[in-house]
Simulated scan of single mutants.
Amino acid sequence: MLTGNRFLAALLLTAAPLVAHGAHAAEITGAGSSFAAPIYQAWGDEAKKAVGISLNYQSVGSSAGQNLVSARTVDFGASDAPVAPAKLASSSLYQFPTVVGGIVPIVNIPGVASNALKLDGETLAGIYLGTISTWNDPKIVALNPGVTLPDLAIAPVHRADGSGTSFVFTSYLSKVSSAWKDQVGAATSVQWPGGAGARGNDGVGASVRATEGGIGYVEYAYARRNSIPTVQLQDKDGEFVKPETASFAAAAAGADWEHAPNFAVDLLAPAGKNAWPIMSATFVLVPTNAKDPARGAAVCTFFANAFRTGDATAQKLDYVPLPETVKQQAVSGCPTKGSN
C-alpha cells in the first residue's frame, strides 16, 4: 500500500496525462477566501514550475467563491465556511480542506504593544455588540493589570463582504457568548450591531492600521506581514494564549477529522494546553461534473502537488499543514474526470 508522499506522487503521475490533453488544461482559475489567498498564490508559483499549471486566483471572499464555482465561472471555489451537505449535492461539488490557520484580533491602541492586551471571548463579543465602547472599560482593565489603557473610543471593524473569516469569527463569538448567539449569530454575513465594514482581510487590516482605537479580525498572515498588533485570547482552560505557530499547531492537533462529514471539522475553542481558540480549516470546492474535464483534472493535480511539496511554504506563511492521512483522503476523492 502506498502511504504519505508516495501516495500523492502516484496520484500526480496518474493525473498528468489528463492535464496534458486540453489546450487550456495548464491554466486554472480559482476564487474565494481571502484567508487562503496567501497560500494559494504561493502554491501557484510553485505549481507553475513543478507541474506546469498556472493559477489565476481572485481573493473575493468565501461567499463569492461558493457562488462562482456553483455557477461554473471558475474551476474551483475557496471557502473558510464549510458548505452544507445538501448544497454540495445540489451543486455537484466536492469539498476538501487544504490548510488550517488562525483568525486573530488586531488592534490599534496608542501605547499598547502587540500581544500586551488580553481579552476573553465575552469581552470580545461585548466590544462587537457595542456594550463595551472604550478601551479603559472596567471589564478590559480587569483583564489587564499593569497595562495602561487610554480613555479612547473603540472602533470595531468587520468584513463588509460575505466572508468565511467572518463565519469563523462569529461562530467563535456564538460559542463563547450567549448574548452574541442570541442577538447576532454566526454566518458569512451578519447584521453587525455597529462598526465599520471593509472588504477582505487586507481591507480590515488597513482600516485598523489607519484608525486609532480600532479593532478587527484577520487571518494571522495579514497581521504579521503588515506588523499590526495582535492580542492574547483566553483559551478553554482560562489561560491567555498568544497567536503564534505553536498555539495554532496545538489547536489543530486536537482536530477530529475522522468524524467530520465532508471534512467540516470544528476547531473553535479547542481543549488542550496553549491552544489558540479561533482556528479554521479552509476548503476547496471542485465540481464533480466539470465543464472542461482537463481543467478539472488540473485542479486535482495542482492540490496533489501542493500537498506533496507545499508544507514548508504553508508553515512559512503561518498555516498548519494537514495530517498526511487527511491529505490522502482529500486528493483520492478529488474528481479527476468531468463531463461536457
Rank of each mutant, 00 (worst) to 15 (best):
T211V: 15
T211E: 14
G216W: 06
Y217R: 01
V218G: 05
Y220L: 15
R224D: 07
N226F: 11
T230Q: 13
V231A: 04
L233G: 13
D237M: 09
K242L: 11
E244H: 09
A246Q: 14
A246E: 09
A246R: 12
A246K: 14
S247R: 05
F248W: 12
A249F: 15
A250P: 12
A251P: 11
A253L: 07
A255K: 09
D256W: 04
D256G: 06
W257S: 03
E258N: 15
H259D: 13
A260H: 03
D266P: 10
D266K: 04
L267A: 07
L267F: 09
L268V: 05
A269H: 03
P270M: 10
G272P: 13
N274C: 01
S280H: 03
V284D: 05
L285V: 02
T288Y: 01
N289Q: 12
A290C: 06
K291M: 08
A294N: 02
A297P: 10
C300G: 08
C300K: 03
T301G: 14
F302I: 04
F307Q: 10
T309A: 12
G310T: 09
A312N: 06
A312D: 11
A314Y: 10
Q315Y: 01
L317H: 05
Y319R: 08
P321T: 00
P321N: 00
L322P: 11
E324A: 15
E324W: 07
T325M: 02
T325I: 04
T325D: 15
T325H: 13
V326N: 02
K327L: 11
Q328E: 14
Q328R: 12
S332C: 05
S332D: 11
